[in-house]
Amino acid sequence: MNTRILKAEFDYFAPASIGEALALIAQNGPTARFIAGGTDLLVQMKLETVAPGCLISLMKISELSVLKREKGFLRIGAAVTWDRILAFGSEDRSYPALDDAVRCLGKVQVRRMGTIGGNLCTASPAADSAPALLVYDSRVRLVSARGRRTLLLDKYFLGVQQTARAADEIMTEIRIPAPRPDVGGAFQKLARVGADISKISCAVAVERKGRVCVSCRVAMGAVAPVPLMIRGVPEFLQEKTVTASLLVTAGRMISDEIRPITDVRSTAEYRKQVAGVLFRDVFQKAWTRAGGEP
């Protein structure tokens, strides 16, 4: 496969408003696609797994590049690049799990071009932003000619690269509720080398009071067709005093709940084995960050 050139011809537009972008997607038929940083889409086009007849760039639409706190939410425009989110995270430590994820997402050049919206719209089961955004109970905003809607991220992923977003819908922003004061968060991924695609990843957000886990949320990547919200463990840990043996049990429950596959990056058995250990490590980090004794 020659990945050095894009073989197929296509048209290109870079509209300055959402209205124009929606008009262009309607006019250019079913093979038209949106493009943000292009770090997923151009690779897929070079590999000839997709062949859009028309690309509509979203990078000139200012509404998609907001990044600010407002009314109890952090609003991140879908076209905000990873390097901006990284810079934001170095100043604002409210979302450490997201910050951990961005730090190991791609390398410098990819973080400069790639966007948060692109990561969620490609919707790889290994998308590194997804577990962190899930544990923070994020929402995505979508707009089409039919109107605007907001979806919980938990309801957005439907299958491998399948989402609730219609082909003519633009993701405008991600909204993350401000975390409660005693919440700690962390994310970690296992990969062959530093910034590779995850073999498996895990994010935890935990609210603690002394040694008691008041509540927690856990999500994992690359263990199911979608970035997966873990259901059993949060209920199990709720209002319990956290001990090493309790976390071992919780880790086993996670290994049982996930449904990984075998692929080029890992076997299903390995993923099941390592999931519990990874969970414990990430939980510990989030727990320490939530304050108090380790």
Partner: peptide
């Protein structure tokens, strides 16, 4: 230089408005 063509090797890096990007994953129109 033209290496992998898919963002892995970095030998095509240029500064675009002052920051390094992979020119193999950037369209000329961009």
């Amino acid at each position: 230089k033209n290496g992998c063509g898919k963002g892995d090797c970095g030998c095509c890096a240029v500064l675009l408005d002052g920051r390094a990007v992979n020119s193999c994953l950037t369209l000329a129109v961009q």
